[in-house]
């Protein structure tokens, strides 16, 4: 076990190194730098441009900048986000919890709903609830998140005014509100983007959960459970689900990275000021230190999620391997 964990950590470090290098190299082909928009006008003297670029090291050759960046990273320095006029670390520290909240709620909602839908489909296999939900989950898998986001925003937000169309808090002096009211306001703003993100997760989870359950329902011990006089739901919940949840939990590690990708679009659409929106804005502002930090962070999350999933999958199903 210890050896496995060490190997996993080394793999994770290697992936991070490759991604960091690749992103840095790719950004060298992108035009401009954080000062391009502000300083490259005709009426700025060349000496001023030179001075600002020199101050933040943008006049150095790429190889040297790479070495400096890696060196700073090793000391936990992420650099300065010129577009925000703040250190990258501060920007990230604000944005990361918001994205974790959005993605975490979407994952929890998506898995809970998906497992439930899978159970209902397996319970009513080949009857109308199964077919109806099957069509819906297929739609959920096929539906692009941004389209669903725009539809939800248009109807639930703008037309029916049930939810705010964008942002993370109501306008006005919310800082003076009591804590529970602020929390409620946050949830109200979270509802649309989280549910939109959760729909795709739920649809994928449901399809996997249904298939896994149907595979297990043919097993002998299910027949035993029925012969004991258990009702169908109890059979599903106590005997089928524990044996069919493994492959679905393995999806968690796969869903997280793609969810972070989806969060970029959803945060942009709903104006949710998390890492996705930060990355998007940083790209437009050519704030490359911030872009690098955001991409690296997403990579860390993906790699850690993968590693954790493997560990969990092993600890959930060690028994299978030991059956004689």
């Amino acid at each position: 076990m210890t050896r496995r964990i060490v190997v996993r950590l080394l793999q994770a470090a290697a992936v991070l190194a490759v991604v960091a290098t690749a992103v840095f190299v790719l950004l060298q082909f992108a035009p401009g730098d954080p000062f391009a928009a502000a300083l490259d006008g005709t009426n700025v003297p060349p000496s001023v441009r030179m001075e600002w670029r020199a101050r933040y090291g943008f006049d150095l050759p790429p190889a040297e900048r790479f070495v400096r960046w890696i060196g700073a990273l090793a000391h936990g320095e992420l650099g300065y986000a010129a577009s925000r006029h703040r250190p990258v670390a501060d920007v990230v520290a604000d944005a990361v919890p918001r994205t974790l909240l959005l993605v975490g709620v979407a994952l929890a909602l998506g898995f809970a709903a998906g497992i439930l839908v899978g159970l209902v489909q397996a319970r009513h296999h080949r009857r109308w609830p199964d077919r109806l939900l099957g069509a819906l989950t297929l739609g959920g898998v096929a539906m692009p998140e941004f389209l669903l986001g725009l539809l939800a925003m248009t109807w639930l937000g703008a037309r029916w005014r049930l939810f705010p169309v964008a942002g993370i808090a109501s306008l006005g002096d919310t800082a003076t509100w009591p804590a529970w009211e602020r929390a409620l306001d946050l949830l109200w703003h979270l509802a649309l983007p989280a549910v939109v993100l959760a729909v795709g997760v739920a649809a994928r989870v449901a399809r996997h959960q249904r298939a896994a359950l149907l595979g297990v329902l043919g097993e002998d011990y299910i027949r035993t459970a029925r012969a004991k006089g258990l009702g169908e739901w109890r059979v599903l919940w106590h005997h089928a689900l524990p044996n069919a949840i493994g492959p679905v939990l393995a999806l968690l590690g796969l869903a997280l990275p793609s969810l972070i990708g989806g969060a970029v679009l959803i945060e942009r659409i709903f104006g949710w000021p998390g890492m996705g929106l930060t990355l998007f804005d940083a790209l437009l502002a050519r704030d490359y230190p911030l872009v690098l930090a955001a991409v690296l962070l997403a990579t860390v999350v993906a790699v850690v999620a993968r590693a954790l999933t493997d560990v969990v999958a092993e600890s959930v199903a060690p028994r299978r391997a030991r059956i004689p």
């Binding site: 097993e219 002998d220 011990y221 027949r223 035993t224 459970a225 012969a227 106590h238 005997h239 524990p242 044996n243 028994r319 299978r320 059956i323």
Partner: peptide, 12 residues
């Protein structure tokens, strides 16, 4: 049942 290994729930 006939096959006592498969007739019991492996996770319980």
């Amino acid at each position: 049942f006939q096959e006592p290994l498969t007739a019991l729930n492996p996770r319980q």
